[in-house]
Amino acid sequence: MSNFNELAESVISGNFGRVKEITQEMINKGVEPLQIINDGLIAGMNVVGVRFKAEDMFVPEVMMSAKAMAGGMELVKPLIAETEMPSVGTVVLGTVKGDLHDIGKSLVAMILESGGFKVINLGTDIAPEGFIKAIREHKPQIVGMSALLTTTMLNMKATIELLKEEGLRDQVKVIIGGAPVSQSFAEEIGADGYGSDAMVAKDLCIKLVGKAS
């Protein structure tokens, strides 16, 4: 149906108002909520993902698309049971203790959201205890930690240690990133993955939830 096309197109062009309008119209007409999501909202976002990877779209445009999609989702959400909501997974994300760099981590959050993940962005300067608390509260499949300083990246290890102590390590996959971080460091501290940029982070998360589920 051409309406789905228009909805997807509006997501691609990041037209927040138009996405909400069409979604509402569809809801009023009684279109199946899951279909609105899959054939309209997510279909559009998938195109965005492909185009961004092909360097055909700019970061802020991807962000607008994600926002527009979220606008539509919000309207559909109340109509379906929580368990039916097609979410790829939940990710808790934060910059570690002592570290205030948040541009890269926020970009990762945005790209994950655009890929259909639910992201709990904790912000910066997050102590190991902060990650534990968020894991208990949001029950994510994945925890992502960001560090841009060689001093603070050691807190990634501290967080993983605390996860073990608290008996949570088996319940989540841990991924890390940030300029001084590397694959070998990830292995050294027992993380499940390392992402060198936001797109890699997304692919990594998809791979990890695939394994997890």
Binding site: F58, V59, P60, E61, M63, M64, K67, S106, L107, M110
Partner: peptide
């Protein structure tokens, strides 16, 4: 965040 502001998309 400036990334989300339309001013950013415009000048980009």
């Amino acid at each position: 965040n400036f990334l989300a502001h339309k001013h950013t998309r415009k000048y980009l």
